[in-house]
């Protein structure tokens, strides 16, 4: 018998998405294991966001399948689930961190309510407990306790991004999707956020799929990476191996151009 840890958490098979005639991504297959961080890298327009949205059920694939191992151990095809099941999965067992925090936060309610929302969505009905949990998560993402009643509108970009992360982690998800999580931030703020993310992912044993066009982000966060070009996967492997010894000509170009900067 295989232990759950040794079986894939997510499995993508032959996934394609077309926008009319245009290719979003084509024939993509890969697996993600529990606790593993996978980076999806590639230049602008290579299909990273399309792929991420398809596997997180935010965008319907044209063909192919995506399966996920539920907490009971059963592997389920995400697109054969009912919408209710899918949405429950999204707000309990999964997280989604958007590049733009405004897309993932409720900007007009307090930080505490932003963090508490998922708890209330799964039936928590004790205000004191919700607040305690929110306080705990705010501190884990290094937001001062006394900001709990402030709206994210009053937060800096880095704080908003950290709040978005706390909001996603409060239900103890096993898999978190991130699209350019450090995208819009200053370099120094980026570094701090990456540090925090790496710590959380390690401590919580989270699996994550991180889209980035920044190879340094992939190097710092991920165990494994896939490289995309024109909607296809051109290389896949352990992050250090791909970055230190790229095989595909395109990856070689990508790595060398980064090293020249």
């Amino acid at each position: 018998m295989m232990r759950l840890q040794e079986m894939p958490l997510l499995s993508v098979e032959g996934l394609s998405r077309y926008y009319g005639e245009r290719v979003g991504c084509r024939d993509v297959s890969f697996e993600v294991y529990p606790g593993e961080v996978l980076a999806i890298v590639g230049e602008s327009g290579s299909g990273k966001t399309t792929l991420l949205n398809c596997i997180s059920t935010r965008l319907e694939p044209s063909t192919g399948s995506v399966s996920y191992r539920m907490r009971d151990g059963a592997m389920r095809d995400l697109y054969r689930m009912s919408e209710a099941e899918r949405r429950l999965l999204m707000r309990t067992d999964w997280g989604f961190v958007h590049q733009n925090p405004a897309d993932g936060l409720r900007m007009t309610v307090s930080a505490g309510a932003n963090v508490g929302e998922r708890l209330m969505a799964v039936g928590e009905r004790h205000y004191g407990r919700i607040r305690d949990t929110a306080t705990h998560w705010l501190s884990r993402v290094e937001i001062a306790e006394d900001r709990i009643d402030d709206q994210p509108r009053a937060f800096s970009g880095g704080m908003r991004q950290r709040l978005q992360i706390a909001r996603n982690l409060v239900t103890g998800p096993r898999l978190v999707f991130m699209d350019e999580p450090t995208g819009g931030l200053d370099v120094s703020v980026q570094a701090r956020l990456l540090d925090l993310l790496r710590g959380l992912v390690n401590d919580l044993g989270l699996a994550a799929i991180v889209v980035t066009h920044d190879l340094a982000v992939a190097r710092l966060l991920s165990h494994r990476m896939i490289v995309m070009k024109d909607g296809r996967v051109v290389e896949e492997g352990l992050t250090d191996r791909v970055l230190d010894d790229p095989q595909a000509p395109y990856t070689q170009l990508l790595v060398s151009s980064i090293l020249q900067v």
């Binding site: 919408e83 307090s110 309510a113 929302e117 998922r118 209330m120 009905r125 205000y127």
Partner: peptide, 18 residues
């Protein structure tokens, strides 16, 4: 349709917080 009513309590939470 999906009985996703967490948001109603977000509103009440905000009331109490404020």
């Amino acid at each position: 349709a999906l009985e996703e009513y967490g948001l109603m309590h977000v509103k009440l939470y905000e009331d109490i917080a404020r």
